Simulated scan of single mutants.
Amino acid sequence: MHFSDYDTRLAGYAVIVNEDREILLSWFNGGKEPAHALWTLPGGGIEFHESIEVGTIREIKEETGFDAELVRPLTTHTFTENRSNASRRRSAPRPFKGVRVVYQARITGGILGTLEVDGTTDRAEWLAIDSLTGIRHARIIDIGLEAWRTVA
């Protein structure tokens, strides 16, 4: 399929692990579908005018309250699905491709607390990495941690 035949969303995420082996996560409230609420990595969609790095740092700040710097890219992850964007364009549904870049990052300042207003992130917390098996979380966390473990 030619790239002009599907919609793409570019997103940047961060794996931030502290000295206590806790990972900084954001609570995604599910947006219009509260049943889809779960923990995820801080990050999200990159705006048209932003570089992936600048957008990822902005997303970290919005979702966690922390200033951060990116240490290194860890991995990329792509997925495809059928999504309807007909409500936005009044056209037939188009296939969708998500492209996610995951970075290792570190906190440089700020205070824990979500800055989003009327967004999809309700809070951020440090959670023990070992606790993830028992909580509802996005697959991107597992993808990011697997890549992080290869460089940590």
Rank of each mutant, 00 (worst) to 15 (best):
residue 57 I to L: 15
residue 48 F to S: 13
residue 25 L to I: 12
residue 29 N to G: 04
residue 44 G to C: 07
residue 22 E to H: 12
residue 24 L to K: 02
residue 60 I to Q: 10
residue 40 T to E: 12
residue 36 H to F: 13
residue 22 E to C: 06
residue 64 T to Q: 10
residue 45 G to S: 09
residue 62 E to G: 03
residue 24 L to R: 02
residue 60 I to V: 15
residue 30 G to H: 12
residue 66 F to M: 06
residue 36 H to D: 15
residue 50 E to C: 10
residue 52 I to Q: 09
residue 38 L to D: 00
residue 61 K to G: 04
residue 32 K to A: 14
residue 45 G to K: 10
residue 52 I to E: 07
residue 55 G to C: 12
residue 23 I to H: 00
residue 45 G to E: 04
residue 52 I to D: 02
residue 49 H to M: 08
residue 31 G to R: 08
residue 33 E to I: 13
residue 67 D to T: 15
residue 55 G to Y: 02
residue 55 G to S: 11
residue 37 A to P: 13
residue 24 L to D: 00
residue 31 G to M: 05
residue 30 G to T: 13
residue 27 W to I: 02
residue 34 P to M: 08
residue 38 L to W: 00
residue 28 F to H: 15
residue 42 P to K: 09
residue 39 W to F: 01
residue 59 E to D: 09
residue 54 V to T: 14
residue 24 L to I: 04
residue 33 E to A: 06
residue 30 G to V: 11
residue 57 I to D: 01
residue 43 G to I: 06
residue 22 E to M: 03
residue 20 D to G: 04
residue 34 P to D: 03
residue 32 K to H: 12
residue 53 E to Q: 12
residue 67 D to M: 12
residue 36 H to E: 15
residue 43 G to D: 06
residue 48 F to T: 11
residue 54 V to H: 11
residue 25 L to W: 00
residue 42 P to H: 06
residue 63 E to G: 04
residue 65 G to E: 10
residue 56 T to V: 04
residue 44 G to H: 06
residue 51 S to W: 10
residue 38 L to K: 15
residue 22 E to S: 04
residue 22 E to R: 14
residue 46 I to K: 02
residue 58 R to M: 03
residue 62 E to A: 07
residue 25 L to G: 04
residue 46 I to H: 04
residue 39 W to S: 03
residue 63 E to F: 02
residue 25 L to R: 00
residue 24 L to T: 01
residue 28 F to Q: 06
residue 29 N to Q: 08
residue 67 D to V: 08
residue 63 E to A: 05
residue 49 H to I: 05
residue 62 E to H: 04
residue 62 E to C: 01
residue 44 G to E: 04
residue 50 E to Y: 09
residue 51 S to Y: 09
residue 64 T to V: 07
residue 46 I to N: 05
residue 44 G to V: 03
residue 44 G to Y: 00
residue 65 G to D: 09
residue 26 S to Q: 12
residue 50 E to L: 10
residue 43 G to W: 07
residue 55 G to T: 11
residue 47 E to T: 10
residue 54 V to G: 02
